[in-house]
Design a protein around this nucleic acid. Structure first.
Lengths: 247, 247
DNA sequence: TAGTGGTCTAGACCACCCT
DNA sequence: GGGTGGTCTAGACCACTAA
């Protein structure tokens, strides 16, 4: 791993610097609440202008890895604040972060023609949209059922995704990105409490009437169009949701 | 409201510009997916340098009000993306945003001596911390019970908060800021599902065994020290949690 | 080719903190 | 007073998009 900045590198200098600084924090070379070199010192150390320094440090600050105090310096955040907790992750990524092996059992996969009107509203699609792609899956962690997931997708006209493709790639997000070149930017999510009906109880292997955590997400692309509506019913006893909020 | 930038104003120029641009978007002067003036045009329009323009527009972009596309321009986000959904809010602010009048019924307010060990762990305080301030309240919206809130605070030595003060100001956050000069920066929150025990059921006016949404928060100050641990049990039928996640 | 946002420089002055 | 981060300028070149 490099510890100097190469002006001719493909990656921008502020990004190279960001990586260098983050590594030092991750490795514990700079301890929590300890001051990192000042911006003027970093200018000399890495031979880049202060603007570039500030771009890198500003990003670290927004990511919660460091905090800046006017007139005093820039300091490493305590470890708890160093984990990004508002990141948009797929179910698979989420499970991996929790140290569980993600899995799925596909219950149904098909195009809905015509689509349910409320889904068109969520996705901000015109009422004459011919079809919506729908997948229903039981999602597992270490082979235990964790959630019941239903996804609704606005695929380009005439396109579809097969069960074989989904089973092979595992994640819808991967298919969206690699096959349709759709990059996800953000999601709006709501969480509420509900009770398992007989079908949900059977699929999630819990008693009927058990409390569940219901998550509903609308996913947005890079050009800020809605692409997917996802509903996940999580087992209340096996799932805990975490976020970081900022002022 | 001003539409020009005053170089001698107390507020920085990028912030004045940010306000001007946000107003135009809020008022609908620039419509969703419409391009706003280019950075070079804004330079001329407002007589500030491109760096300053980029600082303002970059903040609007991070707040989700606009999105930037390399080589194309900067565009207004669709309205749904214009609401900041990861903002740290107090219960009172939260209710107001939902159009409900916040209220509270204080159940207990006291210093715990000695403090419960698990709270010290959450707040990263030394084991010999003499006392922790605790408030338990039923929180209401339009006079209906919404949540049962328990707050644990590390107040400066010898300080306390009286019931009268809390009733008068309404919000702990206000007291923290105005009396102790403690500014909140961020919070880590976990959400999970639980079931009402007899006491909780009675206070929240729901049947015993009703599903509840349990939120637990650790609040961090500007210099990234933990100040408060808050637990809120929300009525499952009256509360829905929303967040925005980004990639 | 012209216009857009993305990156970068070398400087400047200000506001804040500590000694 | 000397060091820190915060704001700001006037310029430059690059990478991307579209006509």
């Amino acid at each position: 791993m490099s510890t100097t900045i190469d002006p001719n590198h493909i990656l921008p200098r502020y990004y190279q610097l960001l990586t260098i600084l983050r590594d030092k924090i991750d490795k514990g070379e700079w301890q929590p609440h300890q001051a990192i070199p000042s911006e003027r010192q970093l200018e000399v150390l890495y031979s880049v202008s202060r603007t570039t320094i500030r771009q890198a440090v500003g990003m670290l600050s927004r990511q919660g890895l460091v905090y800046q105090q006017h007139g005093k310096g820039t300091f490493v955040s305590p470890r708890k604040l160093q984990k990004g907790l508002v990141e948009l992750t797929s179910f698979s990524e989420d499970m991996q972060q929790r140290g569980l092996i993600p899995g799925q059992r596909i219950l149904e996969i098909r195009n809905m023609e015509p689509p349910p009107p409320e889904i068109l509203v969520y996705l901000e699609l015109p009422p004459d949209t011919p079809s919506i792609f729908r997948v229903e899956r039981v999602r597992t962690g270490d082979d235990q059922p964790i959630g019941l997931q239903t996804s609704f997708l606005a695929l380009p006209a005439g396109q579809t995704i097969t069960q074989a493709e989904l089973e092979q790639r595992g994640s819808l997000y991967t298919i969206l990105q690699e096959r349709f070149n759709i990059n996800l930017h953000s999601a709006d999510e709501t969480l509420e409490v509900t009770i398992a009906n007989p079908r949900e109880a059977q699929l999630l292997e819990v008693p009927e009437g058990s409390p569940l955590l219901l998550s509903e997400r609308v996913l947005w692309t890079n050009d800020h169009r809605a692409v997917e509506f996802v509903r996940i019913l999580y087992r209340g006893d096996r799932y805990r949701y975490t976020v970081r909020l900022t002022r």
